[in-house]
Design a protein around this nucleic acid. Structure first.
Length: 280
DNA sequence: AATGCATGTACAG
DNA sequence: TGTACCTGCATTG
Protein backbone atom coordinates (compact mmCIF):
# COMPACT_ATOMS: atom_id res chain seq x y z
CA UNK A 1 0.00 0.00 0.00
CA UNK A 2 1.45 3.13 -1.26
CA UNK A 3 3.29 5.84 0.60
CA UNK A 4 6.68 6.94 -0.69
CA UNK A 5 8.56 3.95 0.69
CA UNK A 6 6.43 1.59 -1.42
CA UNK A 7 7.27 3.43 -4.62
CA UNK A 8 10.99 3.63 -3.86
CA UNK A 9 10.99 -0.07 -3.10
CA UNK A 10 9.29 -0.67 -6.44
CA UNK A 11 11.86 1.41 -8.31
CA UNK A 12 14.57 -0.76 -6.81
CA UNK A 13 12.74 -3.96 -7.68
CA UNK A 14 11.99 -2.91 -11.25
CA UNK A 15 15.62 -1.90 -11.76
CA UNK A 16 16.91 -5.16 -10.26
CA UNK A 17 14.55 -7.42 -12.18
CA UNK A 18 14.14 -5.60 -15.52
CA UNK A 19 17.12 -3.24 -15.70
CA UNK A 20 19.07 -3.59 -18.99
CA UNK A 21 16.63 -6.34 -20.00
CA UNK A 22 14.35 -6.63 -22.98
CA UNK A 23 10.67 -6.85 -22.05
CA UNK A 24 7.37 -7.79 -23.59
CA UNK A 25 4.86 -5.08 -22.72
CA UNK A 26 1.13 -5.64 -22.62
CA UNK A 27 -2.09 -4.19 -21.30
CA UNK A 28 -4.55 -7.05 -20.85
CA UNK A 29 -7.12 -4.62 -19.44
CA UNK A 30 -6.68 -2.41 -22.52
CA UNK A 31 -6.34 1.08 -21.09
CA UNK A 32 -2.60 1.21 -21.79
CA UNK A 33 -2.76 -0.93 -24.92
CA UNK A 34 -1.61 1.62 -27.47
CA UNK A 35 1.52 2.59 -25.55
CA UNK A 36 2.17 -1.03 -24.64
CA UNK A 37 2.19 -2.06 -28.28
CA UNK A 38 4.62 0.74 -29.03
CA UNK A 39 6.94 -0.35 -26.22
CA UNK A 40 6.79 -4.09 -26.74
CA UNK A 41 10.26 -5.55 -27.09
CA UNK A 42 12.06 -2.49 -25.78
CA UNK A 43 14.82 -2.56 -23.21
CA UNK A 44 14.15 -1.22 -19.73
CA UNK A 45 16.99 0.92 -18.45
CA UNK A 46 15.88 1.30 -14.87
CA UNK A 47 13.33 2.96 -12.63
CA UNK A 48 13.36 5.93 -10.32
CA UNK A 49 10.96 7.45 -7.81
CA UNK A 50 10.21 10.96 -6.63
CA UNK A 51 7.67 11.10 -3.83
CA UNK A 52 4.88 8.73 -4.87
CA UNK A 53 5.67 8.96 -8.61
CA UNK A 54 7.47 6.05 -10.24
CA UNK A 55 9.14 6.44 -13.65
CA UNK A 56 10.37 3.45 -15.60
CA UNK A 57 13.00 4.54 -18.11
CA UNK A 58 12.38 2.67 -21.36
CA UNK A 59 14.87 4.64 -23.44
CA UNK A 60 14.29 6.95 -26.38
CA UNK A 61 13.27 9.83 -24.12
CA UNK A 62 10.36 7.73 -22.88
CA UNK A 63 9.30 6.83 -19.36
CA UNK A 64 6.34 4.93 -18.02
CA UNK A 65 4.85 7.19 -15.36
CA UNK A 66 3.07 5.27 -12.61
CA UNK A 67 1.14 6.58 -9.63
CA UNK A 68 -0.64 3.96 -7.51
CA UNK A 69 -3.20 6.27 -5.96
CA UNK A 70 -5.06 4.93 -2.98
CA UNK A 71 -5.39 1.28 -3.90
CA UNK A 72 -3.16 0.60 -6.87
CA UNK A 73 -0.62 -2.23 -6.81
CA UNK A 74 2.41 -3.15 -8.88
CA UNK A 75 3.46 -6.70 -8.15
CA UNK A 76 6.89 -7.79 -9.32
CA UNK A 77 7.50 -11.53 -9.61
CA UNK A 78 11.00 -12.86 -10.16
CA UNK A 79 12.37 -16.38 -10.51
CA UNK A 80 9.11 -17.81 -11.80
CA UNK A 81 8.91 -20.98 -13.89
CA UNK A 82 6.00 -19.70 -15.95
CA UNK A 83 4.01 -16.52 -16.46
CA UNK A 84 0.37 -17.09 -15.49
CA UNK A 85 -2.67 -15.72 -17.30
CA UNK A 86 -3.54 -12.26 -15.95
CA UNK A 87 -5.91 -12.20 -12.99
CA UNK A 88 -8.23 -9.21 -12.66
CA UNK A 89 -7.76 -5.91 -14.44
CA UNK A 90 -4.08 -5.74 -15.33
CA UNK A 91 -3.41 -2.38 -16.92
CA UNK A 92 0.28 -2.97 -17.51
CA UNK A 93 2.20 -6.21 -17.66
CA UNK A 94 5.95 -6.43 -18.16
CA UNK A 95 7.46 -9.80 -18.97
CA UNK A 96 11.23 -10.27 -19.12
CA UNK A 97 12.14 -11.95 -22.42
CA UNK A 98 13.61 -14.96 -20.63
CA UNK A 99 10.12 -15.55 -19.19
CA UNK A 100 11.50 -15.84 -15.67
CA UNK A 101 10.09 -12.52 -14.36
CA UNK A 102 6.97 -10.43 -14.80
CA UNK A 103 5.17 -7.51 -13.16
CA UNK A 104 1.47 -6.59 -13.07
CA UNK A 105 0.02 -3.12 -12.48
CA UNK A 106 -3.55 -2.84 -11.20
CA UNK A 107 -5.77 0.01 -10.03
CA UNK A 108 -3.26 2.78 -10.63
CA UNK A 109 -4.43 6.35 -10.88
CA UNK A 110 -1.70 7.13 -13.43
CA UNK A 111 -0.11 4.89 -16.05
CA UNK A 112 1.14 6.95 -18.94
CA UNK A 113 3.99 7.20 -21.39
CA UNK A 114 5.81 10.51 -20.88
CA UNK A 115 8.91 12.30 -22.10
CA UNK A 116 11.86 13.25 -19.91
CA UNK A 117 10.67 16.86 -19.96
CA UNK A 118 7.25 15.78 -18.73
CA UNK A 119 8.85 13.71 -16.00
CA UNK A 120 10.96 16.68 -14.95
CA UNK A 121 7.85 18.85 -14.79
CA UNK A 122 6.26 16.43 -12.33
CA UNK A 123 9.41 16.39 -10.22
CA UNK A 124 9.54 20.19 -10.28
CA UNK A 125 6.06 20.64 -8.85
CA UNK A 126 6.49 18.35 -5.85
CA UNK A 127 8.38 19.06 -2.65
CA UNK A 128 11.57 17.43 -1.36
CA UNK A 129 11.42 13.66 -0.90
CA UNK A 130 13.05 12.41 2.33
CA UNK A 131 14.10 9.24 0.50
CA UNK A 132 16.23 11.11 -2.02
CA UNK A 133 19.75 12.00 -0.86
CA UNK A 134 19.70 15.30 -2.75
CA UNK A 135 16.45 16.45 -1.11
CA UNK A 136 16.45 19.91 0.45
CA UNK A 137 14.38 20.12 3.65
CA UNK A 138 14.69 23.90 3.62
CA UNK A 139 12.38 24.01 0.62
CA UNK A 140 9.69 22.40 2.77
CA UNK A 141 10.49 24.68 5.70
CA UNK A 142 10.04 27.74 3.47
CA UNK A 143 6.44 26.65 2.92
CA UNK A 144 5.71 25.39 6.44
CA UNK A 145 7.15 28.40 8.24
CA UNK A 146 4.95 30.79 6.25
CA UNK A 147 1.74 28.83 6.33
CA UNK A 148 -1.33 29.22 8.52
CA UNK A 149 -2.46 25.75 7.45
CA UNK A 150 -2.30 22.92 10.01
CA UNK A 151 0.97 21.00 10.03
CA UNK A 152 -1.14 17.85 9.58
CA UNK A 153 -2.36 19.23 6.26
CA UNK A 154 1.05 20.50 5.16
CA UNK A 155 2.71 17.12 5.70
CA UNK A 156 0.18 15.51 3.35
CA UNK A 157 0.60 18.22 0.72
CA UNK A 158 2.90 16.67 -1.88
CA UNK A 159 4.08 20.09 -3.03
CA UNK A 160 5.46 20.67 0.49
CA UNK A 161 6.93 17.23 1.23
CA UNK A 162 6.79 14.40 -1.31
CA UNK A 163 6.12 10.84 -0.26
CA UNK A 164 4.48 11.28 3.13
CA UNK A 165 1.02 9.73 3.40
CA UNK A 166 -1.59 9.30 6.09
CA UNK A 167 0.38 6.80 8.19
CA UNK A 168 3.71 8.62 8.24
CA UNK A 169 1.89 11.89 8.92
CA UNK A 170 0.10 10.60 12.00
CA UNK A 171 3.11 8.74 13.33
CA UNK A 172 5.63 11.51 12.73
CA UNK A 173 3.47 14.06 14.57
CA UNK A 174 3.06 11.66 17.47
CA UNK A 175 6.78 10.96 17.70
CA UNK A 176 7.44 14.70 17.85
CA UNK A 177 4.57 15.43 20.25
CA UNK A 178 3.06 17.96 17.85
CA UNK A 179 -0.68 18.53 17.63
CA UNK A 180 -1.76 18.00 13.99
CA UNK A 181 -3.93 21.12 13.87
CA UNK A 182 -1.15 23.46 14.93
CA UNK A 183 -0.41 26.07 12.25
CA UNK A 184 2.78 25.41 10.29
CA UNK A 185 4.11 28.88 11.00
CA UNK A 186 4.06 28.29 14.77
CA UNK A 187 6.70 25.54 14.51
CA UNK A 188 10.32 26.31 15.27
CA UNK A 189 12.95 25.45 12.67
CA UNK A 190 14.64 23.00 15.03
CA UNK A 191 11.40 21.07 15.31
CA UNK A 192 11.15 20.77 11.55
CA UNK A 193 14.79 19.70 11.27
CA UNK A 194 14.18 16.97 13.82
CA UNK A 195 11.01 15.84 12.02
CA UNK A 196 12.79 15.73 8.66
CA UNK A 197 15.73 13.76 10.06
CA UNK A 198 13.26 11.35 11.61
CA UNK A 199 11.36 10.97 8.32
CA UNK A 200 14.61 10.16 6.52
CA UNK A 201 15.29 7.32 8.96
CA UNK A 202 11.71 6.05 9.25
CA UNK A 203 11.03 6.00 5.53
CA UNK A 204 14.37 4.39 4.71
CA UNK A 205 13.43 1.68 7.18
CA UNK A 206 10.11 1.38 5.34
CA UNK A 207 11.95 0.85 2.06
CA UNK A 208 14.13 -1.80 3.66
CA UNK A 209 11.31 -3.77 5.27
CA UNK A 210 8.32 -2.94 3.09
CA UNK A 211 6.21 -2.07 6.13
CA UNK A 212 5.66 1.07 8.18
CA UNK A 213 6.83 0.51 11.74
CA UNK A 214 7.26 3.67 13.77
CA UNK A 215 7.31 2.50 17.38
CA UNK A 216 10.47 3.13 19.37
CA UNK A 217 12.18 0.16 21.04
CA UNK A 218 11.02 1.15 24.53
CA UNK A 219 7.38 1.16 23.39
CA UNK A 220 7.44 -2.11 21.51
CA UNK A 221 4.95 -4.78 22.59
CA UNK A 222 7.65 -6.95 24.19
CA UNK A 223 9.10 -4.04 26.11
CA UNK A 224 5.70 -2.99 27.45
CA UNK A 225 4.09 -6.39 27.88
CA UNK A 226 1.21 -5.87 25.49
CA UNK A 227 0.22 -8.15 22.64
CA UNK A 228 1.58 -7.24 19.20
CA UNK A 229 -0.78 -5.82 16.61
CA UNK A 230 -2.46 -8.38 14.42
CA UNK A 231 -5.16 -6.46 12.58
CA UNK A 232 -3.16 -4.19 10.31
CA UNK A 233 -0.60 -4.15 7.58
CA UNK A 234 2.33 -5.38 9.58
CA UNK A 235 4.13 -2.67 11.49
CA UNK A 236 3.65 -1.33 15.00
CA UNK A 237 2.19 2.15 15.12
CA UNK A 238 1.37 4.66 17.86
CA UNK A 239 -1.89 6.22 16.67
CA UNK A 240 -2.72 5.44 13.03
CA UNK A 241 -6.14 3.74 12.86
CA UNK A 242 -6.14 3.30 16.64
CA UNK A 243 -9.04 5.67 17.41
CA UNK A 244 -10.49 5.02 20.86
CA UNK A 245 -7.73 2.61 21.84
CA UNK A 246 -5.32 3.47 24.65
CA UNK A 247 -2.19 5.40 23.73
CA UNK A 248 0.86 3.14 24.04
CA UNK A 249 2.67 5.85 25.97
CA UNK A 250 0.09 7.53 28.26
CA UNK A 251 -3.01 5.36 28.05
CA UNK A 252 -5.44 8.04 26.90
CA UNK A 253 -7.90 7.05 24.15
CA UNK A 254 -6.52 8.00 20.74
CA UNK A 255 -8.42 10.87 19.10
CA UNK A 256 -9.63 11.05 15.53
CA UNK A 257 -11.24 13.55 13.17
CA UNK A 258 -11.57 14.06 9.44
CA UNK A 259 -9.24 16.68 7.99
CA UNK A 260 -9.33 17.48 4.29
CA UNK A 261 -11.29 14.31 3.66
CA UNK A 262 -8.72 12.04 5.33
CA UNK A 263 -8.84 10.42 8.74
CA UNK A 264 -6.46 11.97 11.21
CA UNK A 265 -5.28 10.34 14.45
CA UNK A 266 -3.46 11.73 17.47
CA UNK A 267 -3.11 11.49 21.23
CA UNK A 268 -4.48 14.59 22.90
CA UNK A 269 -2.27 14.13 25.96
CA UNK A 270 1.03 13.33 24.21
CA UNK A 271 0.33 15.92 21.51
CA UNK A 272 -1.18 18.88 23.39
CA UNK A 273 -2.64 21.77 21.43
CA UNK A 274 -0.65 24.24 23.53
CA UNK A 275 2.50 23.78 25.55
CA UNK A 276 1.54 23.45 29.16
CA UNK A 277 3.06 25.77 31.75
CA UNK A 278 4.32 22.87 33.82
CA UNK A 279 6.31 21.54 30.88
CA UNK A 280 8.59 24.58 30.93
C1' DA B 1 -24.01 -11.23 -1.64
C1' DA B 2 -23.76 -6.70 -0.44
C1' DT B 3 -21.62 -2.95 1.70
C1' DG B 4 -18.01 -0.07 3.34
C1' DC B 5 -13.52 1.43 3.64
C1' DA B 6 -8.42 2.35 2.46
C1' DT B 7 -1.18 4.12 3.28
C1' DG B 8 -4.26 9.20 -2.99
C1' DT B 9 -5.21 12.73 -6.26
C1' DA B 10 -7.79 15.65 -9.54
C1' DC B 11 -11.47 18.17 -10.85
C1' DA B 12 -16.25 20.29 -10.67
C1' DG B 13 -18.92 23.74 -8.80
C1' DT C 1 -16.30 20.52 -0.13
C1' DG C 2 -17.90 16.77 -2.54
C1' DT C 3 -17.27 13.24 -5.88
C1' DA C 4 -15.04 10.25 -9.23
C1' DC C 5 -11.56 7.15 -10.11
C1' DC C 6 -11.42 1.75 -9.52
C1' DT C 7 -9.35 -2.48 -6.60
C1' DG C 8 -8.94 -5.65 -2.62
C1' DC C 9 -10.20 -6.79 1.70
C1' DA C 10 -12.90 -6.76 6.06
C1' DT C 11 -17.36 -6.50 7.82
C1' DT C 12 -22.32 -7.10 7.62
C1' DG C 13 -26.54 -9.58 6.62
Amino acid sequence: MPEGHTLHRLARQVTDVFGDQQVRVGSPQGRFAEAAAQLDGTEVRGAETWGKHLFIDVGGDRHIHVHLGLYGSFDVHDLVSDVPAPVGEVRLRLVRVDGKAYADLRGATICALVTTAERDAVVARIGPDPLRPDADPDRAWARISRSAAPIGTLLMDQSVVAGVGNVYRAELLFRHRIHPLRAGRTLRSGQWQAMWDDLVVLMAEGVRTGIIDTVRPEHEPEAMGRPPRDDDHGGEVYVYRRAGQPCHVCGRAVSTTVLGGRNLFWCSRCQPAFRSRSAR
